[in-house]
Amino acid sequence: MVLQAFGFGHPGGIELLLRILQAENGRFPAEVYAADEGELSLGEDDEDLSELARGLRYAKRQVQTLPPAQGERYQRWLDHASQIKEHMDAGDLVLDPLGVEELPEREELMDEHGIGRGEAACLVLALRHGAPAVFVSSDEEASEVADELGIRRITIRDVLRSWVNVFGPSTAVFDELVEGLRQARFDPGEGFADSLRREL
């Protein structure tokens, strides 16, 4: 969902995310995104597709079915999302599927902790690489599981806090990203955003 937040919310969101994280690339499992949005027609049930593919298909359906003024928001999501493929082509975003031997570990995390398939797969991948996991701020269950497993984890709020403290963007640029995140349905919280803006 972090890819969706930054990929849908701002035309340069992925580059900004990687810069804030000071990461050469971001890796994600196929459960998060497998470039599989075109495998089914828009009317077919997409429950088995990757999380980001479902988000892309939802946006396409909204553009096709809503009046143009209401569909504009979702068209913006799709326009911004083109950066994801560009970053994958450049190697900044890397699809890193779980191995067959790792799938039981993913299932165990889902069963024991009640977290989703994508979150569990991210945790397995983070364990493999000894890397931090990045979650949306509202994903408290996955964050708690990461803590239990000793995996470093970062939330969107942590990313925004680091952006303000380390990079000091202008208030206009800050407002643009926060509004983009809200438009992409990932509101960091009005009080939280206001406190960061005051710091700027």
Rank of each mutant, 00 (worst) to 15 (best):
P68D: 14
E140K: 13
S82W: 00
L95H: 00
Y74M: 04
E141S: 08
D89L: 10
D147R: 13
H87S: 04
F135D: 04
R152Y: 02
L160S: 03
D96T: 11
L123I: 00
A133R: 13
Q70R: 15
D158W: 07
V100L: 06
E86Q: 12
H129D: 12
L66S: 09
G114C: 09
G118T: 08
D89R: 12
E119A: 01
C122Y: 06
M110V: 09
V94A: 00
E140R: 08
V134W: 09
V159P: 01
A81D: 06
S143N: 12
G99S: 14
E112K: 10
G71F: 15
E102A: 06
A133I: 13
P104H: 14
E112H: 03
G71V: 15
A120Y: 03
E72R: 07
A121Q: 08
L125M: 07
M110A: 10
R152E: 11
C122M: 14
V134Q: 11
S138C: 02
R106C: 08
D139Y: 00
G91C: 10
L109D: 10
M88G: 10
E112Q: 10
A131N: 08
T155C: 13
S138P: 03
L123D: 01
D89V: 13
W77R: 07
V145R: 07
A69K: 12
A121S: 12
D89P: 09
R153M: 02
L93A: 10
D92F: 05
E101H: 14
R152G: 07
L123C: 00
L123W: 01
L78C: 15
R128C: 12
D111Q: 08
D79P: 07
Q70P: 15
L123M: 02
A120S: 12
G116K: 11
T155G: 14
L160M: 09
E101Y: 10
R117C: 00
L160I: 04
L149Y: 01
L109E: 09
S138Y: 07
K85T: 11
Q75R: 15
V136I: 13
E141N: 05
E140G: 05
V124H: 04
A121W: 09
E112C: 02
A126K: 02
G91Q: 13
A126P: 01
L149W: 00
H80M: 01
L78N: 15
P68W: 09
A133K: 10
Q70Y: 15
A120C: 05
P97I: 05
E112G: 00
K85P: 04
I156K: 01
A133C: 14
P97C: 11
A126Q: 06
A133Y: 11
A90L: 09
P67Q: 07
D139G: 01
R106E: 11
E72S: 03
E105I: 06
V124L: 02
V145L: 05
G130R: 09
H113V: 04
A120F: 02
W77H: 15
G99M: 13
I84T: 03
E86N: 05
L98R: 05
A120E: 02
D79S: 11
S138R: 12
L98Y: 06
A146T: 04
E140H: 11
G116A: 08
L125I: 08
A146G: 02
K85G: 13
P68C: 08
G91I: 07
D139Q: 01
S138L: 07
L78I: 14
R106Q: 12
C122S: 15
D158V: 13
P132R: 12
L98E: 06
E86H: 07
V134F: 04
C122K: 03
D111R: 10
P132L: 06
L78H: 15
H87W: 00
V159A: 03
